[in-house]
Design a protein around this nucleic acid. Structure first.
Length: 519
RNA sequence: GACCCCAUGGUCUAGAGGCCUAGGACAUCACCCUUUCAAGGUGGUAACCCGGGUUCGAAUCCCGGUGGGGUCACCA
């Protein structure tokens, strides 16, 4: 029993209930205070969607989904000179093709308090804050010419010192600044030159920087537009971004963003997560010379994009149980930043293709049939059932390009024959053998794989040859190839008229010496 | 050069001091299956960067090397 005061005895169970209520109430309050997870992918519209960017977007997307948060697309178009027209649309198409739909972005009707979602359209805000920093002497005008700065940097390099701004214009008086008002100038932030700066990173832990390694960096260009590190900090704050998930190359610049926040008096520092980079086989930064890097290039190669997303997911993240094949939706159930790898990952085309093959064989037939359609370079309106052909061929294909190629003979008789196959399977007896096969098949009352198999058994016995000696020439004569689906399935699907016709054609070509081979 | 990050087979990774004789996947090799090629099955080759500590015990913790990467723009 708990005695609160004389004469009143508080039953313990009631006390516990009250205590429980208190705890529950306070946790509810905390729940409400805690902002929803808001993450962003902020690409610069200077090209197409790159696999590195795609993975960054993917991890952001998964984190948002996992925590019922918002995934925001923001276009980082602060530098007009570097932009490529149409890039924004290309990037959005790339994200969508991977299944990464954003909740807020530049293409959406903006009725939220967070937009606009193009950085160039937020200029008024950036300028106002730059004005504010200038007025409060947290920043200053710098009139140094680029030429002068280049000379300074060179001098420092020569002395093996880090290239940093001298601070020359920091001590300019207000009168001096006013006097030079018409001159070309930039705005620099005053960076504290003592103390340390700590970046809390969920993947890497606390990372410390000595403030002295940073100089007074530029926040506004001569045309009074913001530099990335300034704009990104403001936009993340204004958009109430809670988690900044981005590439490792941004880690060293994070203190600059913290300095901006401090100067502005903001303390809502987002949680950072710096993802390891995707590397080329030689461990260098992956680029064009290493082959495909853009999502659209993979699409054109016929790599299934669901597989690409899955592969990218496994480049730096893993499930606790070692499962590798999982869809974006499945991954969204269990994604966590804590399980992100610290090391840069080398991109491996072979494994990507293996993933593509997995999806090729496990996605619904109708889906594959739809996806391969753009890669079909021949007419398919006559001939065997399109989906049946897809079904028969897909388990041998790693890409949609391969699949389309392997399906071709179902719709077009071979014009040439595999050279190695001809050398191996076509002999002086072949034309005659093909005639025998044609005779045998002609008499079939049922045209299905079972009946076909029996026909080959009968004929091989009658001729006294192995079944394989009939099968290989048949395949080559009907498809022009030595590889492909099982012969009986293939013949069944192709249909008796077509098969008999092709057998005859091939036999004639052999006899007349008009057989064209191809390597 | 300074600062920061990182370090398990060829590649992606598991590993939170004893469950590790280091597990899985891709690739590779062999065999099996088989009408070809795939797929599938079985098995094999192959890794804790080096050196010091701490500990009864280290892939795991600490320090130092080495190596790789990133950043130091009026690019993002």
């Amino acid at each position: 029993m708990i005695r609160l005061c004389d004469g009143f005895v508080f039953p313990p169970c009631l006390f516990l209930i009250l205590l429980h209520h208190l705890v529950t109430l306070s946790s509810v309050a905390r729940e409400e205070e805690r902002p929803v997870v808001r993450v962003r992918y902020a690409p610069s519209p200077t090209g197409t969607l790159h696999i590195g960017g795609a993975r960054t977007a993917l991890f952001n997307y998964l984190y948002a989904r996992r925590h019922n948060g918002r995934f925001i697309l923001r276009v980082e178009d602060t530098d007009e000179t570097r932009q490529i027209p149409g890039s924004e649309a290309l990037m959005m198409a790339g994200l969508k093709s991977l299944g990464l739909e954003w909740d807020e972005g530049p293409d959406m009707e903006d009725n939220s308090r967070y937009g606009p979602y193009r950085v160039s359209e937020r200029l008024v805000r950036h300028r106002a804050l730059a004005d504010q920093l200038l007025a409060s002497h947290r920043a200053y005008r710098c009139f140094c010419s680029p030429e002068q700065l280049a000379i300074d940097r060179k001098a420092l390099r020569a002395k093996n010192l880090a290239p940093r701004y001298s601070g020359r214009c920091r001590s300019l008086t207000e009168d001096e600044v006013r006097a030079r008002a018409g001159e070309r100038s930039v705005v620099r932030l005053i960076v504290p030159q003592e103390g340390m700066c700590t970046v809390h990173d969920v993947i890497r832990g606390d990372v410390e920087f000595d403030n002295r390694v940073f100089d007074d960096f530029v926040i506004m260009k001569p045309d009074y537009t913001p530099v990335y590190n300034f704009a990104v900090t403001i936009d993340d704050h204004d958009m109430e971004i809670t988690h900044v998930i981005r590439g490792e190359e941004h880690l060293s610049n994070t203190p600059k963003q913290l300095f901006v926040m401090a100067a502005l008096g903001w303390d809502d520092v987002p949680t950072f997560a710096h993802l390891p980079m995707i590397l080329a086989p030689d461990k260098s930064k992956i680029s064009k010379r290493h082959g495909a890097t853009a999502v659209e290039e993979y699409r054109d190669q016929g790599i299934l994009l669901a597989a690409l997303a899955n592969y990218l997911l496994m480049l730096g993240w893993s499930t606790p149980d070692g499962r590798e094949i999982l869809t974006i939706d499945e991954a969204a159930q269990e994604f966590s930043l804590e399980r992100v790898q610290h090391t840069g990952a080398i991109y491996d085309q072979k494994k990507l293709e293996w993933f593509s093959h997995q999806y090729m064989t496990h996605l619904p037939i109708a889906e594959i049939a739809r996806l391969v359609r753009p890669f079909i370079y021949y007419r398919v309106d006559e001939g065997p059932s399109y989906e049946a052909v897809v079904s028969l061929c897909r388990e041998r294909a790693y890409t949609l390009v391969q699949l389309a190629d392997q399906m071709a003979f179902f719709y077009h008789p071979p014009e040439h024959y595999d050279a190695k196959g001809v050398a191996k399977y076509f002999t002086a007896l072949t034309a005659q053998r093909l005639d025998c096969v044609r005779n045998e098949l002609q008499g079939l009352s049922h045209w299905d794989r079972e009946a076909l198999m029996q026909a080959y058994d009968r004929l091989s016995e009658a001729l006294g040859v192995k079944r394989a000696e009939l099968i290989h020439p048949t395949r080559l004569s009907v498809t022009g190839r030595t590889v492909g689906p099982g012969l009986f399935e293939l013949l069944e699907l192709l249909g008796s008229a077509e098969v008999l016709s092709r057998l005859q054609t091939t036999a004639e070509r052999i006899r007349s010496g008009n057989l064209v081979t191809q390597d």
